[in-house]
């Protein structure tokens, strides 16, 4: 079971309230899709500068594995407050701890509510993944 203290998107990002900000990252499923368990297959991650304003659904960064470049999307609007720069130098963090140390950005959201269309709780996200694997 993935952590139930946050919400998930169908494109495999997670969002979690963190004081006045919201942390955003990607799930273990997203990481596995990109690198099949070979943490060395993740080669580059491009994250935004603090201060950038993001609309809901906007691409905030990009991640490259040996074989694919994929967008990173925010489901919530806000301003980038902080970026986890450690990831850009140590991509293995994403494989080892995607839900904690692997957070990517914190945004100061326009609305702090996570009750937004398209966001799923952990149980619904698990069902989505189970359906994919069926």
């Amino acid at each position: 079971m993935r952590p139930d203290d946050r919400k998930y998107t169908k494109s495999h990002e997670w969002v979690k309230l963190d004081g006045d900000t919201i942390k955003i990252g990607i799930t273990d499923f997203a990481v596995t899709e990109l690198c099949s368990g070979n943490e060395g297959d993740l080669v580059y991650c491009d994250l935004p500068e603090p201060g950038r304003e993001l609309d809901a659904g906007e691409t905030f960064g990009e991640i490259e594995s040996v074989k694919a470049v994929a967008d990173l999307n925010t489901p919530l609007a806000g301003t980038v407050a902080e970026v986890n720069v450690a990831i850009e130098e140590h991509l293995e963090i994403l494989s080892r701890d995607p839900f904690n140390d692997g957070w990517m950005i914190k945004i100061t959201p326009k609305s702090k509510s996570l009750d937004v269309d398209g966001l799923m709780d952990a149980a619904a996200y698990e069902e989505l993944l189970a359906a994919k694997e069926a």
Partner: peptide
């Protein structure tokens, strides 16, 4: 080369890459 590349005669003969965006 990577493990998924197509090779013959000791060299890579097909290279490919993907972009995944917005489904």
């Amino acid at each position: 080369s990577t493990d998924l590349d197509l090779a013959w005669s000791g060299a890579k003969g097909v290279g490919s890459a993907q972009r995944r965006t917005k489904g």
